[in-house]
Write a protein that binds this DNA or RNA. Structure first.
Length: 548
RNA sequence: GUCUACGUAGCUCAGUUGGAUAGAGCAUACGCCUUCUAAGCGUACGGUCAGGGGUUCGAGUCCCUUCGUGGACGCCA
């Protein structure tokens, strides 16, 4: 929260304490920036909220608060009571401009805040199986998860970005068989690709690579050894591809958790054991079931199949418990919409094992439809398969891809307009924002000197005030976006900031040799604007170009 | 059929624990470059917040219901 807002809130709290003896334990006192600037620089609905407690008319309460407020806060220029009891206040222009020096001093750190108060939070995202290429379905969740973590880190959360690798299930055996088939194919031998196997280009390439490197060596060894080899190599090469794609897409991870490692450390058997000891399981039809319906799931779920193998659920429970065991207070997973029905059973497991139910949250990524010229693009033209992340980014650029995915709330079905993302025109929001940045950079390059000043008394026009107020809001917005895990708020902010800047630019000539004092003050404002815009783009993982 | 999300302007979407006359961008129409990046700015047009009911000082927001769309309903992962 900025200095002025801080002052306002704490003063309002003091006032209701002193005058009405009401201690604000939660967030009774809130100030907001009215949508309509005729309603003040800031506004509070405090009087209306107190009306029930005090049993007085909101207008009367508002008037009492107004008196106290004008007496106590010197930065306030004017206070009005409006509508049903809103208290609106105007801040002295000179106080608003203080933000310029705050921004310039903070630099890359402007926007950082401590709203997270060190809460530890583990975010698991992407976690695609190492059996195929990352495609469109992963791209939205990947950009989202990455940006959410950038926001959390900036807001003082202790955040760990984690990728869970499903490298132990029977899909890995299927991968081995698929790789083997492609290997044989490349060697010109007869082969059969399993029906449930992986038919993608990626596996085919792995077969070709292995044939090139090893010749027919793996045809002549013991078949089990060969399969072990194909599994290991398939896994290694698939993971390498995934990591390369994610890096290219600017998604970073702090931790890669292997399911196989959980198996080797005995964590899955341990979970099974503990759940049984706690009486959470029963045996039926030769399988071991988890009484998940007791904890809110639709029905009970199998943990161990009658053939003795675990289902997908059991290692995943171990995966999540391991997060708690490492000391994380809060777990956030980002899952595709097709896993939606899986949430209740995982929540059930977490609750059953004694952890608070709401310490685990899942953000669901709704489906994305690729659209071009008004028609849905289902398949890649090149490969005939699902469109991959890399293919998408090579077409429209990483900046546009990330920005588009981040600009819509995660839980809405999204149409991704390829033509729009590709276009380098004003229709495209990414270019709108980046253009503003390039324009700012150009202005600053041409200036003789840009520096902090002691006073900004000339920045009093509506357009300047608008910019100042909005720049001042930035750390609040970041805190809010982190708390609600909503990078789309940052996109909205960027669009509006760019708009304010473009409008300001259109109204005034900034480098004006005939008015040096004004030029210096405006240049400092432009610099603050540049820093804010750059930082905002950083939280999205989008580049801020100096030139376009 | 059951569960779960979503439904806001012609299109794509915002809308911050319920607040003031529901907002942007695009599209459409009309203006603005001998001047710091026109990839820009400005003006206008555009709404039964899917329909209905309820909760209250106040509902796009919360609850119920109908309709529509997507997804999930395996001893798959």
């Amino acid at each position: 929260m900025s200095k002025i807002e801080d002052t306002l809130v704490s003063t309002l709290k003091d006032i209701i304490k002193d005058r009405y003896d009401i201690a604000d334990s939660g967030n009774m006192v809130m100030i907001e920036i009215p949508k309509d600037s005729n309603n003040g620089d800031y506004s509070t609905n405090l009087a209306m909220r107190l009306t029930k407690i005090l049993k007085k008319r909101p207008q009367d309460i508002a008037n009492e608060i107004k008196e106290e407020l004008t007496a106590r806060v010197k930065e306030i220029e004017r206070v009005d009571i409006a509508g049903p009891g809103f208290i609106n206040f105007w801040i002295k222009k000179t106080a608003l401009a203080d933000v310029i020096n705050v921004v310039i001093d903070a630099g890359d750190d402007y926007g950082k805040n401590d709203s997270g108060q060190g809460e530890s939070i583990l975010v698991e995202y992407v976690s695609a199986n190492p059996t195929g290429i990352l495609h469109l379905g992963h791209a939205r969740g990947a950009a989202w998860g990455d940006s959410v973590c950038r926001l959390l880190k900036a807001s003082g959360y202790d955040c760990l970005r984690e990728y869970y690798i499903n490298d132990a299930g029977n899909q890995m055996d299927m991968l081995a068989l698929s790789v083997e088939a492609r290997y044989r194919e490349e060697l010109g031998l007869d082969f059969t690709l399993p029906e449930d196997g992986y038919h993608g280009e990626d596996v085919k390439k792995i077969g070709i690579e292995l044939a090139k490197e090893y010749g027919d060596k793996w045809i002549h060894v013991d078949h089990d050894d060969a399969l072990k080899f194909f599994k290991a190599e398939g896994y290694r090469l698939e993971m390498k591809r995934i990591r390369d794609d994610l890096e290219y897409y600017r998604c970073e991870f702090d931790s890669w958790i292997s399911e196989q490692k959980l198996v080797d450390e005995g964590r899955i058997d341990k979970v099974m054991e503990t759940m049984t000891e706690k009486g959470l399981t029963y045996t039926e039809d030769g399988a071991i079931w988890f009484k998940s319906s007791v904890y809110g799931d639709d029905k009970d779920r199998v943990l161990k199949k009658s053939n003795g193998y675990y289902t997908y659920l059991t290692p995943d429970i171990a995966n999540h418990l391991y997060k708690f065991e490492r000391g994380y207070q809060k777990l956030v997973d980002i899952w595709g919409a097709d896993h939606h029905g899986y949430i209740p059973r995982m929540k059930a497991a977490i609750e059953a094992m004694g952890y608070p139910k709401d310490s685990f949250e899942v953000d669901i990524v709704q489906m994305v439809r690729l659209v071009e010229d008004g028609k849905e693009v289902k398949m890649s033209k090149r490969t005939g398969n699902a469109v991959t992340i890399r293919e998408l980014c090579e077409d429209i650029g990483v900046d546009a891809a990330r920005y588009f995915f981040l600009s819509k709330a995660l839980d809405t079905h999204m149409d991704f307009d390829l033509g729009l993302a590709r276009s380098k025109t004003n229709e495209n929001p990414v270019y709108y924002a980046q253009y503003a940045y390039a324009r700012i950079s150009s202005i600053l390059r041409q200036a003789e000197k840009v520096e902090k000043l002691d006073t900004y008394d000339l920045l009093t026009s509506d357009k300047e005030t608008e910019l100042l107020k909005y720049i001042n809001e930035f750390p609040n917005m970041i805190a809010e976006a982190a708390k609600t895990r909503s990078p789309n708020k940052v996109c909205n902010y960027i669009q509006k900031l760019a708009q304010y800047f473009h409008s300001f630019y259109g109204a005034y000539k900034i480098n004006d040799p005939s008015n040096e004092a004004m030029t210096r003050q405006r240049l400092a404002l432009v610099l603050a604007c540049k820093i804010t815009l750059k930082n905002a783009l950083y939280y999205l993982g989008v580049d801020a170009p100096e030139k376009m």
